[in-house]
């Protein structure tokens, strides 16, 4: 449903990258690739974290078991 990256996924991937980077049998090329990936994910996670806009929507049921979302001011 949601198109933006999920913070949880980014964080999990980031942790996986760090784990791999800390493992012993890793050549430098791979380490550099992993580092780049880690930095990328870190950036995404930081962006998600600092995103200050909160979205509040109202869910309205429609005929036929579907629903639509509408912005809602709280």
């Amino acid at each position: 449903m949601t198109d933006r990256p999920s913070f949880r996924e980014e964080l999990e991937q980031l942790e996986a990258v760090v784990r791999q980077l800390e493992s012993d049998d890793l050549d430098l090329d791979r380490a550099l690739d992993l580092f780049e990936e880690g930095v990328r994910r870190l950036k995404v996670a930081r962006t998600l974290l600092t995103e200050s806009e909160q979205k509040v929507k109202k869910v309205i049921a429609e005929a036929g078991g579907t629903y639509r979302e509408e912005d809602l001011d709280v």
């Binding site: 760090v18 980077l21 800390e22 430098l28 380490a31 992993l34 580092f35 930095v39 870190l42 996670a45």
Partner: peptide
């Protein structure tokens, strides 16, 4: 809590850099 998570991210960033530095 965002602050707690930010701390955790920073720690991860350090580990990440440390990991690469160690490798280098």
């Amino acid at each position: 809590d965002r602050d707690a998570v930010r701390d955790r991210l920073n720690a991860l960033a350090r580990t990440l850099a440390g990991g690469l530095l160690g490798r280098v």
